[in-house]
Amino acid sequence: MAEHDITLTVNGNEQELTVESRTLLVHALRDELGYTGPNVGCESSMCGACTVHVDGKAVKSCTMLAVQADGTDVTTVEGLDQDGEFHPIQEAFQEEHGLQCGYCTPGMMMTAVDFLDDHDDPGREEIREALEGNLCRCTGYQNIVNAVETASNKMGGSGAAAGGDD
């Protein structure tokens, strides 16, 4: 199996590594570099637990080969908090109980951050549609939607208060 030397900038740190042609980005991040935040939940790109940002956009890292990510900036959930301060999405997930077992949470938050970058004041239906590619088996999604609304407010959006189902 052919091997390739690639460079990934993960959460701001430039890292060089050697991968097989078939190595998935998620396995390179988890097994080679030790970023175990992105999780593997399926092999059909349905669950979204492995979602990371590649050059700022949410990508399912089980659908991308590590060689394809050569030279990119990758952000995993480990890179969300800055200087010991939680990112607003992290604060919101904690405040709203937007998680239970936490397995889907890193991917869910990375998708939400990408979505909120482009959407100032999303409605609940819009949030639900944005999360289409991220499955959660624990929460029933309601508190996740609340969390994304709350994060939107924290990030400067003017959305309705969390718990918009009142």
């Binding site: 097994d31 030790g34 997930f93 936490g102 949470t105």
Partner: peptide
């Protein structure tokens, strides 16, 4: 109250079985 287990789960610090090396 907010959940005590969340900080590990929202930062990637959690350790699931496949994370073990």
């Amino acid at each position: 109250i907010e959940r005590r287990e969340d900080p590990a789960l929202i930062t990637g610090d959690a350790e699931y079985t496949d994370d073990i090396q």
